[in-house]
């Protein structure tokens, strides 16, 4: 039951892009087509879940026990960068077709701030999922990471769908490109605000 609350909360109520403002660069950058948006989202789900799991373990068993948590930022970003490289190499070897689909997005993910953002928030922030505020345990961490990434995917694909339509209408010249995309994103965020209070 609690896992269900985490999923709803992370995907809809506290959507990582539309309510927490993370990953806006890829949200605006690679959302021109639904197909690329889907590919990017799949790659993000994969990387976020894996990297959050690894960084959580590192934080608990290495950084916290040595009392050097101030090194978090630097250690996490290195782990993420290395992990993305490894995933790329492994994927190339074992599943060329998957690599074909996700490959071009992988290098972009290192600087996608959702990855570092989720990794840092699960070890520093307290979450309130219906009950008492607490730091997440391992199981909750994995579920939270995966559903945050899923939330990224949902926002991304919805937004790409809207933008494909937007290409067909005439927009005032000054609004062309990013400005109109931002205003659209604002309206989408407003729609997602309707979910607040669900959890």
């Amino acid at each position: 039951m609690e896992y269900l609350i985490i999923i709803i909360s992370a995907v809809f109520v506290n959507n990582i892009v539309l309510a927490q403002f993370l990953g806006i660069c890829p949200f605006l950058g690679v959302s021109n087509k639904v197909s690329t948006a889907t590919g990017m989202s799949a790659a993000v789900v994969f990387v976020i879940t894996l990297s959050t799991l690894v960084t959580y373990l590192i934080d608990h068993y290495i950084l916290a026990s040595l009392d050097i948590t101030f090194m978090r930022t630097i250690v996490f970003i290195l782990v993420i960068a290395a992990l993305v490289q490894m995933v790329e190499i492994i994927l190339k070897k074992i599943s060329p077709s998957l690599y074909q689909a996700l490959g071009i997005f992988l290098p972009l993910i290192t600087t996608n701030c959702t990855v570092l953002g989720v990794a840092i928030s699960v070890v520093t922030k307290e979450f309130t999922f219906g009950g008492e505020a607490h730091l997440l345990n391992l199981g909750e961490t994995v579920v939270y990471a995966a559903s945050s990434a899923l939330g990224f995917g949902v926002a991304m694909v919805l937004f790409a769908g809207i933008r494909e339509q937007l290409d067909l209408v005439s927009v005032p010249k000054a609004f062309k490109g990013t400005p109109i995309a931002l205003v659209t994103a604002g309206i989408l965020a407003m729609a997602f605000m309707g979910f607040s209070g669900l959890v």
Binding site: K125, E126, F127, T128, E132, A133, H134
Partner: peptide, 8 residues
């Protein structure tokens, strides 16, 4: 309090 909207 641990009943806040986000965290303690």
């Amino acid at each position: 309090t641990s009943k806040g909207f986000s965290g303690t």
